[in-house]
Amino acid sequence: MSDIAIPAEEAVEGAEKKRSRLPLLIGLVLAIGAGGAGFYVMQSGLLMGGGHGAPARVQGMPDIAYVPVEQILISLPPGAPGRHLRFAAQIEVARANAAEVTLLMPRVLDVLNSYLRAVDPAGFDDPGAMTRLRAQMLRRIQIVTGEGRVRDLLITEFVLN
């Protein structure tokens, strides 16, 4: 077998030696420190928020308002998955801008009506269609109302029948 033989005393002595726990403790301390640092960075807005433009953390409800968009009924062309599209939404705005956006609602309805009539109805079956439509409508509303007034568009009804 092997020409080198380990004396029995040395073999038992090496097996009884305990492994050091220092690397485990150092790893644990570093993991806790990294977790704490990551929590601080995310909570303070240093990452993915930039500090500027991030919504202020307020107890209770944020300073927002929702402006309702009247229901829009659009006739779809022949061969579409349905005959009509029924659409309704809410526009999320800062409370201070709610009156201005409400005043501009006829223009918002016009731009939404024009856009929805121009969309190819065959695209409604695509799984990503709602996200794409929402982004396009939001951008058009932001252009009509002016930059910084509208935060988001919440689609409350999108029915093909």
Rank of each mutant, 00 (worst) to 15 (best):
K17F: 06
L160V: 15
R149L: 14
E16Q: 12
R107Y: 10
P81V: 09
G51D: 05
P121E: 07
V101K: 04
E147C: 01
G123Q: 14
I32L: 15
M61N: 12
P77S: 06
R95V: 09
E70Y: 02
L30Y: 03
A8F: 06
I72D: 02
A56F: 05
A8M: 08
I32T: 14
A34C: 14
A98F: 01
A118N: 13
E70K: 15
A80N: 00
A135D: 14
N161A: 09
A118Y: 10
E157Y: 00
K17Y: 09
L25E: 03
L25F: 13
D152Y: 02
Q142K: 15
A122F: 08
A122H: 11
F39M: 08
V111D: 03
I91K: 00
P106I: 07
E147P: 06
M1K: 09
L73F: 06
R140T: 06
R83I: 10
L160A: 05
P62D: 10
R132G: 09
D63M: 02
G36I: 01
L22D: 05
P121W: 04
R83H: 08
A15M: 06
H52N: 07
G51Y: 07
D110Y: 15
V41G: 06
A31F: 09
Q43C: 02
L85N: 04
I74F: 02
P78I: 01
T102E: 14
H84K: 13
P55Y: 03
A135F: 00
R149A: 09
V111C: 03
V69P: 01
R19T: 12
G27C: 11
D63K: 09
A122I: 06
M130E: 12
R151F: 11
E13C: 04
A88C: 03
